[in-house]
């Protein structure tokens, strides 16, 4: 039963990916601007012959449908093509950047869930207390403030006024030859500001969500029973209540993953984080079609995978769902 469910979910996922590929291809061509002009412009100006040879080389002079067919065919055989701008395989460019993006997104996800849920639980303990009010205000602000603004403010505060964190990048170039341990510390040092920036917006949502969810659960009969049995406050909160309140959090976490990736695009740009988001951003400006489509392909794959994993973990967490299609 679970196996057939899994196969069906993966099948849907693949179909979705194919749709994403076609849609991306068409959308990107709607943007004005000719990649050949960009490439020639980057080279320092060009003649008509050069523009023509660039179009020829990248197949830009073929009809759109033919280009789409070639592209889909290539993707199906695992070939994402070469970047117009860098003349390197898109797969290589993405391989250089996918780990930094995963590191950033996963760290932000973990931070936002851990801190958000913790704050939510604390707030739910006394729904009318100071902490609860703080969480509500913080959640509203965190949700409302644009992520790039938070990033810039954190840079000004912690990289310029009080320079305890590096202003940009993932690694200090001067530590390239240092030992592994120092390098890991260095990456963590660079990771803190961007991960927090990205986490803040979702952290606020998790705090609100878990506060509401906990309040609901804390009113149930079995909590009263636990209290009557003399269980400690901590045990009631974290053992009895949180486990049941966690289901909606889990659902939202899966759904948020896609948003996190798009948020990462902005955060990577602000912090010069060497991930896929920045590659996407730069490629759009350069009309580097194969690179944009390659990044979107991987980003949508990550979202599809995250959603499948969420579905599965949901089934693991809630026995009532097992056996349902």
């Amino acid at each position: 039963m679970t196996a057939s469910f899994l196969i069906r979910r993966i099948g849907y996922g693949l179909l979705l990916m194919l749709g994403v590929v076609v849609l991306n291809f068409l959308l990107i061509r709607l943007a004005p601007g000719d990649p050949a002009v960009v490439i020639a412009g980057e080279m320092g100006g060009a003649t008509e012959e050069m523009l023509e040879s660039i179009r020829e080389e990248y197949g830009l002079n073929k009809p759109l449908v033919v280009q789409l067919g070639i592209y889909v065919g290539n993707v199906l055989t695992g070939n994402l093509g070469d970047s117009f701008f860098f003349n390197q395989p898109v797969a290589t460019l993405i391989a250089q950047r996918i780990l930094p993006t995963i590191l950033l997104v996963v760290t932000a996800q973990v931070l936002s869930i851990a801190i958000g849920v913790f704050l939510g639980v604390i707030a739910a303990r006394k729904p009318n207390g100071v902490m609860s009010a703080f969480v509500s205000v913080f959640a509203t602000i965190g949700y409302a403030v644009p992520v790039f603004w938070t990033g810039i403010m954190l840079i000004i505060l912690f990289a310029s006024v009080l320079p305890i964190f590096p202003v940009e990048g993932m690694q200090s170039v001067k530590l390239r030859d240092a030992g592994v341990f120092v390098q890991i510390l260095d990456i963590l040092h660079h990771l803190i500001l961007p991960a927090f920036t990205l986490a803040i917006i979702y952290l606020a949502q998790y705090a609100r969500l878990s506060r509401a969810s906990m309040l609901e659960v804390l009113g149930s009969d079995y909590i009263r029973t636990a209290k009557a049995k003399g269980a400690s406050q901590r045990s009631i909160l974290f053992k009895h209540a949180l486990r049941n309140a966690a289901l909606p959090i889990l659902t939202v976490a899966g759904l948020q993953f896609g948003n996190l990736i798009s948020g990462a695009l902005l955060v990577e740009t602000v912090f010069n984080w060497p991930g896929m988001g920045r590659l996407a951003f730069d490629s759009i400006l350069r009309r580097d079609y194969p690179t944009i489509m390659g990044v979107l392909f991987f980003a949508s794959a990550m979202v599809v995978i995250a959603n499948i994993l969420t579905d599965m973990s949901y089934r693991l967490a809630d026995p009532r769902l097992r056996g349902k299609g």
Partner: peptide
């Protein structure tokens, strides 16, 4: 020699000021 590409000029300025 390491050429570091920092696309945001304000981040680049801070990097210069901090000796990065």
């Amino acid at each position: 020699i390491i050429v570091r590409i920092i696309k945001d000029p304000s981040a680049l300025l801070i990097a210069m000021e901090n000796g990065e």
